[in-house]
């Protein structure tokens, strides 16, 4: 995790060191990251999103760096640990609740009763809404955790096929090319999944924060 944080910081530091008006490749990449998250935060949350932008940025790049570091051989994927992802999700959840209470006050609790719904349905709807609200951190954390674990389990399984096939002699050696090829393709898939999950985590945080800030 320290490595991930340091990598992102180094990327930004060395990228932005020239601080040139016309950016080089490295600086342009750092700026693209900045503007990507900035537009995501502002577009999704609204004008208030600028205040949450550093938080979203931290979240996105913490997860992205964790996912990508995990793809390197002999490394450790901290985002595949439910303790870490749940910690992040609970932090987002608490932030959402605090912001909601601060911005909307007591009216925050009115959201548990959907507007326009019949009063007869209230005993049914309110528990459903509360449950759906409380399940946010769970879904947020398990989504990331499960995706990372699934990816690595796939690597593991196909790698174990190679070892199994190697036990069958020359024929096995030839057929072992298949699982290796699949594993190479899986690395590409995991690169996609890594950025996608970081994006999903960040955009869902943005959506929750918008609900907290709006109204």
């Amino acid at each position: 995790m320290i490595l991930a944080a340091c990598l992102v910081l180094a990327f930004l530091y060395f990228g932005m060191r020239p601080a040139a008006v016309v950016p080089g490749r490295f600086q342009a990449a750092a700026e693209v990251c900045y503007e990507f998250i900035h537009s995501m935060a502002v577009d999704t949350i609204g004008p208030e999103g600028a205040a949450f932008f550093p938080f979203i940025f931290t979240l996105f790049f913490f997860i992205l760096a964790g996912n990508y570091i995990g793809l390197l051989p002999f490394s450790f994927t901290f985002t595949s640990h439910i303790a870490v992802t749940l910690g992040l999700a609970v932090m987002v959840f608490l932030l959402t609740v605090i912001v909601s209470l601060k911005v909307q006050g007591i009216r925050f609790f009115a959201h548990f009763m959907p507007a326009g719904a019949s009063m007869f349905l209230a005993p049914l709807l309110i528990p459903i809404e509360i449950l759906s609200f409380l399940s946010r951190p769970v879904s947020l954390s398990i989504r990331l955790f499960a995706n990372m674990v699934a990816g690595h389990v796939m690597f593991d399984i196909f790698a174990s096929f190679v070892i199994m096939l190697a036990g069958f002699g020359v024929v096995g050696d030839v057929f072992a090319i298949g699982p290796i090829a699949i594993n190479v393709a899986l690395v590409a898939l995991e690169l996609l999944v890594g950025v996608l999950q970081a994006y999903v985590f960040a955009i869902l945080t943005c959506i929750y924060l918008r609900e907290a800030v709006a109204h």
Partner: peptide, 8 residues
């Protein structure tokens, strides 16, 4: 994790 995240 929380400490590192906070520092980051």
């Amino acid at each position: 994790g929380a400490v590192i995240f906070l520092g980051f």
